[in-house]
Design a protein around this nucleic acid. Structure first.
Lengths: 225, 225
DNA sequence: CGGGAACTTGAATGGACTCAATTTAGGTGG
DNA sequence: CCACCTAAATTGAGTCCATTCAAGTTCCCG
């Protein structure tokens, strides 16, 4: 919602950055002087585990904030990459902090943004800890839909800017599992997927899957084109 | 570390609370005017999922903060329960915010605390998303050890204040799995567990398990008392 | 239009779960 | 203080969901 949209309150935008698909915004270890607000496009943040596996931490949609942890830390721990051509506002975190010293409203917004970040991560931990693969994918699709529609995009028809592997990594699943579940949900008439183009056909059924009711049949009841 | 110990910087502690084992500090929906610093004891925070399952969000050890999200939100979303007799400092969040308006240092501490919270949750998401059961349990044990020793408690010998079910819920595992893995780690000479009493015998091996090297044998190589 | 990445689908495997039976620990009242 | 009683923990056997491995297809991008 609006809470993440710090941009409105901040006349601190010094400059803009444009990234091409595949470009890296920052890497682990990079100095972190700034936070970014996504104007258009999509950013994927990811991390390596101690064991060397990769984990997609989040996808950042237009209007959302990237690199919030840099307000309190000197270096980045994630890698941030553009999944499509992306434009961002650059907000120096020092200036943000200085301004926050003056403005109560900005201070509150900043706390809210952090709080929301912590809550998102916590919710994700619950998704990963308690849900089956089907529930995770359904939750992911509905979550994307909600965030996009909050920004004025279509709620029920959108492009997945990330690969199945990205989705899988974010949800703690393998790419094949994500693909299979998309197919099953399509077979059950909940969604339509044609490669990256996704349409939500039955939101209610999807929400049921989210809650662990109505497990999907292994094979589609009806064959779809 | 010290970052979480807001208490030192805050002369705002109005009063203290004492809880008996099993007492609830707050429930979802309760008004959230305050944050708490654990003086002694252990607090477990947990949430219900949409599907009705329960998830243990975190365990809060002495010196750590409980209810940080109440700084930015009106009501609690978690339930906080004492796992043993526990005493807490009560810090009104309004007073905290007012004081933060004046003091740069406190403001920075507050941001750090939030940032740390977000990072903890993110790390937990990686644990849940990318790790096997063995890696999760090993990570949990080492994490507890590190946090306890940072507070001056013994690093290699401590009591688990939570049940196997609590641990399982926190790690996205069933209690039987937690129990089995404790037994396997004991069989491999990494730890010793006698009910709630845990001793770390070989930290290096445990760290290897954390990284996904050296999977544990199904059956103990040597039978231990 | 060619080539490589991304995706789909199948079959077989395996790790964590379920169900179930004991054992152990901890708290309570006689 | 001990016997009891319930909650917690351990262990085994069988099952199932997600993974692995593999083959084939589709989609992009140049």
């Amino acid at each position: 919602m609006k809470q993440t949209d710090i941009t409105r309150l901040v006349p601190l935008v010094r400059r803009r950055v444009r990234l091409l698909k595949g470009d890296t915004l920052y890497r682990p270890g990079d100095d972190a002087h700034t936070i970014y607000a996504v104007r258009a496009g999509t950013i994927r943040t990811s991390m390596c585990t101690a064991g060397g596996r990769n984990h997609v931490v989040a996808f950042h949609l237009p209007g959302e904030i990237v690199g919030l942890d840099s307000v309190a830390h000197a270096t980045h721990t994630c890698e941030a990459t553009a999944l499509e051509d992306t434009s961002l506002c650059v907000i120096p975190s020092a200036a943000l902090k200085a301004q926050a010293a003056q403005l109560t409203s900005l201070r509150d917004r900043l706390l809210e943004a952090f709080s929301l970040e912590a809550r998102r991560e916590r919710d994700q931990a619950i998704v990963l800890g308690q849900m089956t693969a089907e529930e995770r994918v359904a939750t992911f699709v509905l979550g994307l839909s909600a965030r996009l529609s909050a920004r004025g995009f279509a709620a029920s028809e959108f492009l997945l800017r990330m690969t199945r592997e990205d989705i899988g990594s974010h949800l703690g699943l393998k790419l094949e599992t994500v693909s299979r579940i998309f197919s099953r949900m399509a077979g059950a008439g909940m969604i339509r997927v044609r490669s990256r183009h996704l349409t939500i056909l039955d939101r209610v059924k999807l929400e049921d899957v989210t809650k662990g009711h109505s497990p999907l049949p292994q094979r589609a009841a009806v064959a779809l084109l």
